[in-house]
Design a protein around this nucleic acid. Structure first.
Length: 371
DNA sequence: AACTCGGGGGG
DNA sequence: CCCCCAGAGTT
């Protein structure tokens, strides 16, 4: 029997007989919701995306509801999920479909693929789940399952690898029921053919799985690129004046683009950052002490945030401006209620909590210095 | 082809 | 501490 045919038959049998993950977007017929779930799930574990999916479908039952919402409101709902350009593209595409296409979701693979934020995986997922079109998904699960079962050593993160795995996936696809097949292979990868501790012992593919036979399960799939982690050091200032706090929007092409943050300075080395720690008795920006009268209410300990490509260290200084409210270039003065509506990176929410906590419980509750 | 974009879970 | 996750866009 053709290997890809055998694989397909075993997979479908496995899926229908015993195994199906219960997830809120399963069996969904509304293409809007299928699209929404797929965008949320990009590089995101299903159980992490779950609550965001529920949050979004509740706030925006239809694509028109999403399109009518402000970008900032949508960002706030996305807060904490990461890869924030997904959110920007989500809103942009919602407006395009709701207004330009009058609510009619594109219904061919090619037209779906053209949507912002939709790549080969997501286009195949929407085409198959939403329209029953014969396009095979290739995600992290599929790379892993196919590389093991068929013993493929081509790096999955190479151009050749992507091409080869997509081709194999197309061969394996059950063209009569692409949705069920795509669902099956991802469920199989997530529950049996897992990254570590895969369930080979009771696996239905065991008799013909190349990686199992050659005891190379732990060596597949192959990746060739190793990410380099950039270290960064910040000090954030949570500056208050009367009932308002200074925030600014991150506009640079950098991490957390379009989210809000507190005024800060970045240091080019751990040494500089630690030396500057000794100056945390005042409000400093760009190496210069801000002259305006102020009090330092609290200083947090260092908090780190580990991202995929960056390791970010920082601490925060809670400062009260006692004189006039400064109108420093980028700063926007917001009340506490307004701040709650703005999207912040997790790290800055952590700083906000830590600074306030330190203020109430720490030794910095009294005025340290006045300038 | 190489880089960049978050955050959380698990060994 | 490292890898992985229902990947995509930019350079």
């Amino acid at each position: 029997m053709n290997p890809s045919t055998r694989f397909r038959q075993k997979l479908i049998k496995w899926h229908t007989s015993e195994n199906t993950r219960a997830l809120p977007w399963k069996e969904e017929k509304d293409v809007y919701r299928i699209w929404l779930s797929e965008i949320i799930l990009q590089q995101t574990r299903a159980d992490q995306g779950w609550k965001y999916y529920e949050r979004f479908t509740e706030a925006y039952p239809t694509i028109t509801d999403l399109a009518k919402a402000s970008l900032e409101e949508v960002y706030k709902l996305w807060e904490g999920l990461g890869y924030y350009n997904r959110c920007r593209n989500l809103h942009s595409t919602a407006k395009y479909i709701a207004f330009d296409l009058k609510g009619k979701f594109p219904n061919t693979f090619e037209s779906i693929l053209e949507l912002k934020g939709v790549g080969p995986y997501t286009a195949a997922a929407i085409a198959s789940f939403g329209f029953g079109l014969p396009h095979a998904v290739v995600d992290g699960n599929v790379f892993r399952v196919l590389s093991r079962v068929f013993g493929i050593e081509t790096a999955v993160d190479s151009t050749a690898g992507k091409k080869q795995f997509q081709q194999l996936a197309n061969e394996c696809l059950d063209a009569k029921s692409p949705a069920a097949y795509n669902q099956a292979i991802m469920d199989f990868g997530a529950t049996v053919c897992k990254p570590d501790l895969p369930g080979c012992k009771s696996c239905c593919m065991q008799s013909f799985c190349v990686a199992f036979k050659e005891q190379r399960v732990n060596e597949l799939p192959v990746k060739e690129k190793k990410i380099k982690i950039r270290k960064r050091w910040f000090r954030f200032y949570i500056v208050m004046h009367k009932d308002k706090v200074a925030v600014q929007k991150r506009t640079a092409k950098d991490v957390w683009s379009n989210l809000y943050e507190f005024p800060n300075e970045e240091f080019s080395s751990e040494t500089e950052w630690k030396q500057a720690g000794a100056l945390a008795t005042g409000l400093w920006l760009k190496g210069e002490k801000i002259k305006q009268p102020h009090q330092v209410l609290s200083v947090t300990k260092a908090i780190k945030q580990q991202l995929s490509h960056q390791l970010i260290w920082g601490n925060a200084v809670l400062v009260l401006l006692t004189g006039k409210q400064t109108s420093s270039n980028k700063w926007e003065w917001k009340t506490a209620d307004e701040v709650k509506q703005l999207p912040f990176p997790k790290l800055l929410n952590d700083f906000l909590k830590a600074a306030v906590l330190e203020f109430f419980t720490g030794k910095h509750g009294t005025v340290k210095q006045k300038t």
